[in-house]
Amino acid sequence: MSWLPSKVSPASAAHESAPDQSIESLVALHHGFVWRVLRGLGFSRADADDAAQQVFMIVARKIESINASSARSFIYGSTLRVANNARRGRRRRREMATDDELDRAEPEALGPEQRATVVEARALLRELLAQLPDKFRRVLILAELEQLEVAEIAALERVPVGTAASRLRTARQQFRELLEAARDRNPFLNEA
């Protein structure tokens, strides 16, 4: 696939430069990561906001036992747990189907048409991701949204590197098939 991970991802940068682990710095470093993972898992913007707060409440409770080297791993695990609880417990399916993008103020540089395209693209992305089995969806989120290397994905998923690579291959293949099936709805179709 052509959307190969870049060498320096936002999440990697946060991981490598986390000498200070006050709760404020942990939130500052990892909030974007948590929020994007939650969005990739199908949370609406508002729910991702709420769930991210829950994640960092857990982090705040456990900060004394979190090592600098394992902070992101802990935070990722907490994010998945919060996401699973939220999905199990509530009206997640209905909320996931809700398009809450329209109240989102995109960068002013974008015109109305471009904004609509971006909103459509994100909705389609989440729709396609939602059709993948969890373990494939997660590795794809980490690889494509967070642009992590396979070794980093393996560490976060707590699986051997070979397993992570294999899951990523399958995830990409399945996503590709979904993408082809939804080709006509892809807002970037005319640009490709």
Partner: peptide, 17 residues
């Protein structure tokens, strides 16, 4: 198809909280 996928993920990456 790869390009289309890349654009979708790019749009996802650029979304801010």
């Amino acid at each position: 198809i790869d390009q289309l996928g890349a654009r979708l993920f790019q749009a996802g990456r650029q979304e801010a909280p």
